[in-house]
Design a protein around this nucleic acid. Structure first.
Length: 157
DNA sequence: GGTAAGATTGTCT
DNA sequence: GACAATCTTACCG
């Protein structure tokens, strides 16, 4: 199969009763996908410039995919991101979406088949929890999970 | 109908 | 290390 992708190395969790979550105040036009079927994508625009990719778990809960380790289609990613260092291709929500070509068209799209899919696997290194990044509420919740020692994190653990 | 805030990134000093 | 870029949604009047 020809495509682009890699191993997820950094995620963050957001739930319905989490003040930092978009779903905290209930369903709206923007976060509709977050209340949709599990296993679907929730894509939203951040700071008017970047896209952020989430995977819906259950109604109102989702996992933000912050970074992946590029494995497939690295050339395509590098071209989209204008020849950036491979290590930075997907190190961050905005970068990841740009490299994978994710935009609002992917909002609400199922990711258990074509064109997107996520497979379960065993982490190659310990997964460590730490405070989430870039938020102003519920900062003390350690709901950021990243692969220890990975060189592809948006920020070191 | 107007204003403020936001789960970010790239660039300049 | 600090700040600007850029736009959609949410909240208030």
């Amino acid at each position: 199969m020809q495509g682009i992708g890699g191993a997820i190395v950094e995620t963050e969790a957001y739930t319905r009763d989490d003040p930092a979550s978009h779903s905290f105040r209930g369903p709206t036009a923007r976060n509709a996908a977050m209340f949709g079927p599990s296993g679907h994508a929730y894509v939203y625009r951040s700071y008017g410039i970047h896209w952020c990719f989430n995977v819906v778990c259950e109604a109102g809960s989702a996992v933000l995919v912050r970074a992946i380790e590029p494995l497939l289609g690295i050339e395509t990613m590098a071209r989209r991101r204008d020849g950036t260092n491979v290590r930075l291709l997907c190190a961050g929500p905005g970068r990841l979406c740009q490299a994978l070509g994710i935009d609002r068209d992917c909002d609400g799209m199922p990711i258990d088949g074509t064109p997107m899919a996520i497979a379960a696997g065993r982490p190659k290194a310990p997964v460590v929890a730490s405070p989430r990044i870039g938020i102003t509420k519920a900062v003390d919740r350690k709901w950021r999970f990243c692969l220890a020692g990975s060189a592809y994190l948006s920020r070191p653990a």
